[in-house]
Simulated assay, not measured.
Amino acid sequence: MDRSIPMLLVGLIFGGGLGFTVAAANGITLDGHDHATDHGHTTGASASHDHETPLDLPAAPDAPTLSVTATPDPSSGWNLHIETGNFAFSPEHASTDHVPGEGHAHVYIDGVKLGRFYGPWLHLPAQEPGTEVRVTLNANDHRPLAVGGERIEETLLLD
């Protein structure tokens, strides 16, 4: 008699119960993270979680730079190339304190945030002609970066 299905069910029940018990013992909850209200958490002495107020950097030769291009993908959609200068993508430091010269990019399609990106290439699915793509450079703590009061961002329209 094959007992693999009953053993699988027993393993799932006990494994799930053990997982929930360990999570509860460590204070882990299933309520997620509410960006609308939970901006007071910190990961370091001065970390903030402000997605709007720019971190203004001095206009200097080592200030971060951004250039964005979109080329049609031969099969479908667009290939977005995010080129930076004096800036390194740092997924390992996401949501931690600001470190000069590192962070990530935010990509917006017609004003709606597509996500956070940690590298120079991104494939976009097919878009309607005239679709606006905006890319911002952001600090590890998610604040948009600016140089001399001007946000480091590029906007382009897809043909």
Rank of each mutant, 00 (worst) to 15 (best):
E128G: 00
T42R: 13
H35D: 08
A23Q: 05
T29V: 15
T71E: 15
L9F: 09
S76A: 14
M7K: 05
P54W: 04
W78F: 11
R3W: 14
Y108C: 08
E52M: 04
S48A: 12
R143M: 09
G40E: 04
E150P: 03
G130T: 06
E102Y: 08
A25V: 12
T96A: 08
S48E: 12
R151V: 15
G44L: 14
V135Y: 12
S90C: 07
G101T: 07
H142M: 13
R151E: 15
E153M: 10
P144N: 01
D159S: 02
Q127V: 01
L122Q: 02
H123Q: 11
T155E: 04
P72C: 05
P58H: 13
R143F: 14
N26D: 08
P6M: 10
H51G: 12
P120Y: 06
H51S: 01
H39Y: 02
T42N: 02
A88P: 05
E92A: 11
S76F: 07
G16W: 08
S48N: 10
S75T: 14
I82A: 01
T84I: 14
E92D: 14
S67H: 13
L12H: 01
G17C: 15
H39A: 13
A126Q: 12
E154R: 04
L156P: 06
H93K: 10
P91S: 05
G32W: 01
L145H: 02
V147C: 00
N140Q: 07
R151K: 05
